[in-house]
Design a protein around this nucleic acid. Structure first.
Length: 241
DNA sequence: AAATCGTACAACCGCACCTGG
DNA sequence: ACCAGGTGCGGTTGTACGATT
């Protein structure tokens, strides 16, 4: 049987995006919001695969993206989160506002792997590079732990994150919490900035803000949690594997 | 100055999962 | 319950560009 291709390859461009294509995509999404990626290219007048449009938008054109070098703090945070989550780049990206999973994945492969190896640490297991040390996924005592333990959105979840790994029930809770960071709450066009702004400002003022609140501040008691992760089981899936 | 090598990152591909009919 | 379509993720590849020889 086989699946039908995600798009008609014969009439789609491939390779690097031109400025013009980017502008078309931006203006379409500003007007209509992110909707059906499959039909978006046609509607926007782009000869691109929907997946390609999505990727381009998420990884490059989104106004809240932070460009430029990763800071030392981000480095360490990525390392810690990778130790906890493994290659769950989207989850890691969710903890780093303005960074995309692709960004982080690339950065990991080009910089951090080498950095860890030079420290004598195996990038996969986070144990000694030469040994067969088990992955350090328990006994979290690091910056990432602090981040998760102290800033977990308590009210998004039936239980608090402080019970990480304590029981089967709590495992589910961990899933819930980690998944919270996976998608931006505001997708409607009116929530997108109308003009481009400096990345740092954009991150704070655009749809990234709810994300940051979810991820880094947590919800105060009684606040409604509009985070789609609490409703969309798909956002929780990645933690269960 | 040219050739080669290494690095960084944008983009593609295939798969897994979810959703709706 | 099943199936097809849509979406998102992680792995991989391609290529531009700077550094080195």
């Amino acid at each position: 049987m086989g699946r039908s291709p995600c798009c008609e390859k014969a009439h789609t461009n491939k390779g690097a995006w031109t400025k013009e294509e980017g502008q078309k995509l931006i203006s379409y999404i500003r007007t209509h919001g992110e909707g059906c990626w499959r039909s978006l290219p046609k509607a926007a007048g782009l000869f691109r695969c929907g997946k390609s449009c999505r990727l381009r938008w998420i990884n490059y054109l989104r106004p809240d993206l932070k460009r430029g070098k990763f800071t030392e703090e981000e480095d360490e945070l990525i390392i810690e989160l990778h130790g906890l989550l493994g290659n769950k780049w989207s989850l890691i990206a969710g903890r780093l506002p303005g960074r995309t999973d692709n960004d982080i994945k690339n950065y990991w492969n080009t910089h951090i792997k080498r950095k860890l190896l030079s420290r004598g640490i195996d990038p996969q297991s986070h144990g000694p590079a030469s040994g067969n040390a088990a992955p350090r996924r328990q006994g979290i005592t690091t910056m990432a732990q602090d981040m998760i333990l102290s800033e977990a959105p308590v009210d998004c979840c039936d239980k608090t994150i402080s019970s990480v790994g304590a029981s089967q029930d709590d495992d589910r809770c961990v899933d819930l919490d980690l998944g919270l960071s996976m998608s931006l709450p505001g997708r409607s066009p009116e929530r997108l900035p109308q003009t481009s702004v400096a990345p740092a400002t954009a991150a704070a003022s655009s749809c990234a803000q709810p994300l940051r609140l979810c991820c880094h501040l947590g919800f105060q008691s009684g606040e409604a949690c509009g985070c789609p992760a609490t409703k969309n089981p798909r956002l929780l899936r990645a933690n269960t594997s």
